[in-house]
Design a protein around this nucleic acid. Structure first.
Lengths: 196, 196
DNA sequence: TGTACATCAGTGAACGCGCGTTCACTGATGTAC
DNA sequence: TGTACATCAGTGAACGCGCGTTCACTGATGTAC
């Protein structure tokens, strides 16, 4: 064996992915250079390619890890506080002002939309797993339709959070978040299949 | 006078802003270099700084122009086809697949969120003007509350379009757009101020 | 009418810089004997 | 136990490249006389 234990390299890789997730979310993918990403993990730029094939490879791994962490977090929130508390927490000023620890979809959706089909595939699968974790377990009828409803409500929460981040007027931003909560609760209470 | 008429430079500036809007929306701001932006307008890179102070100056001007064009377009759509047709058109596969001619908010919201306060101020004002153009003229009660409701519904449409662009599964993407239309129509039909 | 000059939108080469990526090297450890 | 060697995660300088930005220059036009 070499100078490190057999789990050392794997642990380093996980650490890079973890700090890169925070950096990507706060500064954007194009705004985060390899040297900075590695410095965040306590390393120098040269070691990067011992762990990843390319920057896009890191992005795909990071997105998958972020979504997995979100799935666990949302699952707990939904189990403890119910759906309403989850919605209030997502559409809160605290979440709006915290890019680093916030929702990866809200921070990276646009850039993911412009990525390769492979990266988008990884995103799609990870997001569907998140959706399963927060979906109403009591949902009746077609499970595929219930999945689409949850996914769409989630997209609407993402858009609301993104707009609240872009608005320059803090009061307006707060009001949009509050209205967003009302809208999502309205959708959750509405009859789900009108006429068909 | 010089070799061009007195409106020539102004017309060139408008042309740069117009082509830059399309390029920014399809390739992203960081993905669009000055040389490419100028070539799109039939010019070379050197002429850029006779028209704009910096790339961010162009971005702010472009965002303002894009929102003004969208205000006119949405105003016509809402007047001719009503709100429902406007929603169906916004959340359509055609719009999803057309970045260049599509909604500037859907393409640039994330990047705007990371911009200077000045650029975000320009965005906020332009977007509020768009919202005025599509707001229900028959809206009752507090006009500020009606504005927030319209803005939030719009944010939700933006998020739905963005997610449909990021999903790798075309059928799922279509289904999310359709569910998005249903959700927005549900919100439009819902009583607007439950209990207060 | 003809010539010399002023104007200024646009050209295109060059600037320094930071990017993603490569690679020869380091040095702490485990293994062989 | 002691010495020589193999391993390999990580270092740090260097690569070519395209970025945003600058600037001396061009050349078609209008003006002066």
């Amino acid at each position: 064996m070499a100078r490190y234990g057999k789990d050392h390299k794997q642990a380093t890789r996980r650490r890079i992915i973890e700090t890169a997730g925070r950096r990507f979310k706060s500064d954007g993918v194009d705004g985060s250079g390899i040297a900075t990403l590695m410095a965040d993990a306590g390393l120098t730029n040269g070691a990067f390619y011992a762990h990843f094939d390319s920057k896009e490879d890191l992005l795909a791994s990071t997105v998958a890890a972020q979504l997995q962490a979100q799935r666990e977090q949302f699952g707990e929130q939904a189990a403890h506080g119910g759906v309403e508390q989850f919605v209030r927490s997502y559409l809160s000023p605290q979440h709006r002002d915290d890019y680093e620890d916030g929702c990866p979809s809200a921070a990276l959706l646009e850039e993911i939309g412009r990525c390769s089909a492979q990266t988008r595939q990884a995103y799609t699968e990870g997001l569907l797993a998140v959706i399963e974790a927060i979906a109403q377990p009591s949902a009746t009828g077609d499970p595929q339709a219930a999945r689409v409803r949850s996914l769409t409500r989630f997209a609407m929460m993402v858009g609301t959070l993104q707009l609240s981040r872009a608005l320059a007027d803090p009061e307006l931003s707060d009001a949009v978040l509050e209205q967003g909560v009302r809208n999502i609760l309205t959708l959750l209470a509405a009859p789900q299949e009108p006429a068909d």
